[in-house]
Simulated assay, not measured.
Amino acid sequence: MKFDIVLIDDHSLVLEGLKTLLRDIAGVNSVCTVTNGTELLSLIKSRIFHIYITDLELPDIDGFELMHSIKENNPQAKVIVCTMHEEIWIVNKLRHPDINAVVFKSSGTEALREAVCAVMVDENYYCQRYQQLYKEKNRPDDETELPDMLPTSRELDVLKAIAQGMSTHEISRHLFISENTVEWHRKNLMLKFAARNATDLVIKALTKGYLTIPL
C-alpha cells in the first residue's frame, strides 16, 4: 500500500524541509502541505489522506479541534502531532485516542521518520523525549489535579452557556462555532468535572468557582 501524507504547519520552511524528508520513505506515495486548518478542512472535502502530520499551534484553529475534525471526516486516518510544546499539561493531553504518534520538534527529523514508519504498520509512536516527560508526570508525588484537567477558555464559554440553559444549537449560534465543536467541548467538560449530566456539571462548576451566581 502507498500512503498519501499531508503536513499542516504555518512555517513554510519547515514544511518544505519535512516534505523532502518524508518523500524518501519507502511506501510514501505523495506529500501535500497546507499552512492552516481552514485550508486543510477545505482540501479534505475532495481528497483522502492516510497520514496527517500537524502542529498544535496554528493561526486559525486549535490543533486538538482540528484533529477531532480530521477523525470525524476519516476515522481511519493516522494523526501524528509534531510540536515544540513540551509543557506538562500538553504532554498529558497528547495521550488521546485520536493521536497515533507524538514527536517533539526538539527530537529531530529521525524521530519523525520513525513515527511515520510506525503508523504505516498500525503502531503508535512516542518520541523518547515525550516518553520521558510522560513518565515524570506520572510519578506518585505528582499533583492529583493536573493543569490539562482545567477547562480552557473556550470550554468555559460553553460551560456558561450550558448553565444559562442554552441548547447545542443555541450555543453554536451564540459562539459562532459548529454544533460538532460544541458537543466536543461539552464532552471534555463532562470528563474534566466528572459530571453525570448537565445539572451535575453546573453544580460542580459552581462548587469549584468556575461559575458564579448570577450567571
Rank of each mutant, 00 (worst) to 15 (best):
E86P: 02
L22F: 08
F64V: 07
H11A: 10
A77W: 04
S12G: 00
T33G: 03
L56P: 06
L41M: 15
D10P: 07
I88T: 12
E87T: 13
L43G: 00
L41F: 01
H68C: 07
E72C: 10
V91T: 08
V79Y: 00
H68S: 13
C32F: 15
T33D: 09
K78N: 08
D60K: 05
D55L: 05
A101C: 08
L40I: 06
I80T: 04
I70M: 09
P75Y: 09
L56S: 02
K71T: 12
L66F: 03
G27Y: 07
L56D: 01
D98N: 11
M84I: 15
I70V: 15
K19W: 03
R23K: 15
L22P: 04
V103L: 03
E57V: 13
H85P: 00
I61A: 03
D9Y: 02
T35P: 03
W89D: 15
L56M: 11
T35V: 14
R23G: 00
I61R: 05
V102Y: 00
S69G: 02
R23H: 10
D9E: 12
N36Q: 11
G63H: 02
D10L: 02
S42I: 11
I53G: 01
T54A: 05
T83H: 01
I90T: 15
A26P: 03
L66P: 09
M84L: 12
I8H: 01
L43H: 05
E87V: 09
V91G: 03
I8M: 03
S42G: 09
E16N: 14
M67V: 15
V14M: 09
R95H: 13
K19H: 06
P59T: 04
K105I: 09
A101M: 01
E86F: 00
L18K: 07
C82Q: 03
E16G: 07
T33L: 11
D62K: 04
E72Q: 13
E39H: 04
H96W: 11
E86C: 11
L22W: 07
V28T: 14
F64S: 06
H68K: 12
L40P: 03
L41R: 10
I53V: 11
N92D: 13
T83K: 03
S46C: 08
